[in-house]
Amino acid sequence: MQGVVKVNSALNMRSGPGSNYGVIGTLRNNDKVEIIKEVDGWYEIRFNGKVGSASKSYITIVN
């Protein structure tokens, strides 16, 4: 499943599904990500070869 980031500035990509996990990357508006699965309001995603988590509130699913 594919998604597109929708933010005003930037979205942190984290090492796990929650804001208490470390930041491993930064996503910008309109970045395209691969959604692997949903976990507690977060998506596990793949972006630029990295796997991490980002809040699903800022990612829109595209077909």
Rank of each mutant, 00 (worst) to 15 (best):
P17F: 05
K56P: 04
R14E: 05
G22E: 15
N12S: 14
E34A: 07
K56F: 05
I36A: 02
T60R: 12
A54H: 03
I45S: 00
G25P: 01
K6G: 05
S9R: 12
N20E: 14
Y58R: 06
G3F: 05
K56L: 06
A10S: 13
Y21K: 03
G52W: 03
I59K: 00
V23C: 08
N48G: 11
M1A: 10
R46V: 12
R28V: 11
I61T: 07
V7W: 05
N63Q: 12
I35M: 02
E34K: 06
M1P: 07
S19I: 14
E34V: 10
I45F: 07
K50G: 06
A54L: 08
D31F: 06
K6H: 12
Y43I: 03
I24S: 03
T60Q: 14
S9V: 13
N8Q: 12
R14M: 14
K56E: 04
V7Q: 03
I59R: 00
L11H: 06
N63Y: 12
W42V: 01
G52Q: 02
N48Q: 13
Y58T: 06
S57T: 13
K56C: 08
N30L: 09
G52S: 02
I59S: 00
R28F: 12
I36V: 09
V23T: 07
M1N: 08
F47T: 03
G22A: 15
S53R: 04
M1F: 10
G18K: 02
I36W: 04
S19C: 15
V51P: 05
G22D: 15
V33G: 02
F47V: 09
N48V: 04
S15C: 12
S57F: 14
S19K: 14
M13W: 08
V4G: 01
G41H: 06
I61V: 12
E44H: 08
L27K: 00
S57E: 15
I24K: 02
S9C: 15
N30K: 08
N48L: 09
G3K: 02
I36Y: 06
V7C: 15
G3H: 02
I36C: 07
S53T: 09
N20R: 10
Q2R: 12
Y58L: 06
K56A: 12
V23M: 04
N8D: 14
V51M: 09
G52I: 03
Y58S: 10
D31K: 03
N12D: 15
M13E: 04
R28M: 12
N12Q: 14
V5D: 02
L11K: 09
N29M: 09
D31P: 02
D31W: 05
G16E: 03
I45A: 00
K37Q: 10
K37A: 13
Y21I: 02
Y58D: 10
S57Q: 15
R14Q: 08
E34Q: 11
R46I: 14
S19D: 14
F47R: 02
G18P: 01
N63H: 13
G22Y: 09
S57N: 13
I61G: 03
R14L: 14
D31R: 01
R46M: 12
N12R: 12
S19R: 13
P17K: 03
M13I: 15
K32D: 03
I59P: 01
N48S: 07
T60V: 14
V7S: 13
E44M: 15
N20A: 11
Y21R: 03
K50S: 08
V33F: 05
N63M: 12
V5Q: 01
E44S: 06
Y58I: 04
V5A: 03
G16M: 00
K37S: 13
I35K: 00
G16I: 01
V39G: 04
V62P: 07
F47W: 10
N30P: 03
N29S: 07
G16A: 02
S57D: 14
L11V: 15
V7D: 04
G22T: 13
V39Q: 10
P17C: 10
S9N: 12
G16Q: 02
S53K: 03
G41P: 01
I45E: 00
T26D: 04
V33Y: 03
G22N: 13
I24W: 02
G49R: 04
V51W: 07
A54Q: 02
S53M: 15
I61W: 04
N8W: 12
V51G: 05
G49L: 05
I61H: 04
D40I: 04
E34R: 05
L11N: 03
E44C: 15
R14F: 15
V39M: 10
K32G: 05
V62A: 09
K32E: 10
T60K: 13
G3A: 06
I35E: 00
R14P: 06
R28C: 14
N63C: 13
V51S: 08
Q2L: 14
T26C: 13
V51T: 11
K37L: 07
S15D: 12
V23A: 05
V33T: 01
K6I: 11
D31M: 05
N30I: 03
I36N: 02
N30W: 07
R28D: 06
A10T: 15
S55I: 14
G25K: 04
S9W: 12
G3R: 00
K56S: 11
K56V: 10
Y58Q: 08
N48I: 05
Y21C: 09
I45P: 00
G22S: 14
V23D: 02
E34D: 11
G49K: 04
E44F: 11
V39A: 07
T60Y: 13
V5N: 01
V39F: 10
N20T: 11
N30Y: 08
G18D: 05
G49W: 03
N48E: 12
S19M: 15
N63R: 11
T60C: 13
E38D: 07
Y21P: 02
Y43M: 04
V5H: 01
A10W: 15
V62N: 08
I35P: 00
S55F: 13
I36H: 03
G41W: 05
G25R: 02
N63T: 12
E44V: 15
R14Y: 15
N8M: 11
I24C: 07
V5S: 01
T60H: 14
N12P: 15
L27D: 01
Y43Q: 00
Y43L: 06
N20G: 11
I36D: 02
G52T: 02
I59M: 02
S55G: 09
K50I: 14
N12F: 15
S9Q: 12
P17S: 05
V39N: 08
S53F: 15
I35A: 00
L27Q: 01
G49D: 09
G3M: 03
G18E: 03
G25C: 15
G52C: 06
G3P: 02
G3Q: 01
Q2E: 11
G25M: 11
R46A: 09
K56R: 07
V33C: 04
D40N: 13
K50L: 15
G18F: 02
K6E: 07
K32L: 14
A54Y: 02
S57C: 14
G52F: 03
L27N: 00
S19A: 13
N12W: 12
G52H: 02
M1K: 12
V51I: 13
S9E: 12
T26I: 14
P17E: 04
I35C: 05
N30V: 01
V7E: 03
P17Y: 03
V51N: 07
I36M: 10
G16N: 03
L27A: 02
A10H: 14
Q2V: 14
E34T: 11
G3S: 02
V23N: 03
V5K: 01
S9A: 11
E38M: 07
G16F: 01
S15W: 06
S53D: 03
V7P: 02
G52V: 04
V33M: 04
V39C: 10
G16L: 02
A54N: 02
Y21L: 04
T26H: 10
G3T: 02
F47Q: 03
S55C: 15
L27S: 00
G3E: 02
V51R: 09
Q2F: 14
V51Y: 10
G22R: 13
G3W: 05
K56G: 06
N8G: 12
W42A: 01
M13K: 01
N12L: 15
R28Y: 13
K32Y: 12
L11A: 11
R28I: 09
T60F: 14
E38C: 09
A54C: 13
A10Q: 13
N20S: 12
V4K: 06
K50D: 06
I24T: 06
G25E: 11
Y58N: 11
V51Q: 09
S55Q: 15
K56D: 03
V51A: 07
K37F: 09
S53N: 14
S9F: 14
K32V: 15
S9L: 11
R46L: 12
R46P: 00
K50Y: 09
F47P: 00
N20L: 09
R28W: 08
L11C: 15
V5M: 03
R28T: 08
Y43T: 00
N63E: 13
D31V: 06
V62W: 07
N29Y: 09
A54V: 15
I35Y: 00
W42M: 02
G16W: 03
R14S: 07
Q2K: 11
A54W: 03
K37Y: 08
K6C: 14
I24H: 01
I35H: 01
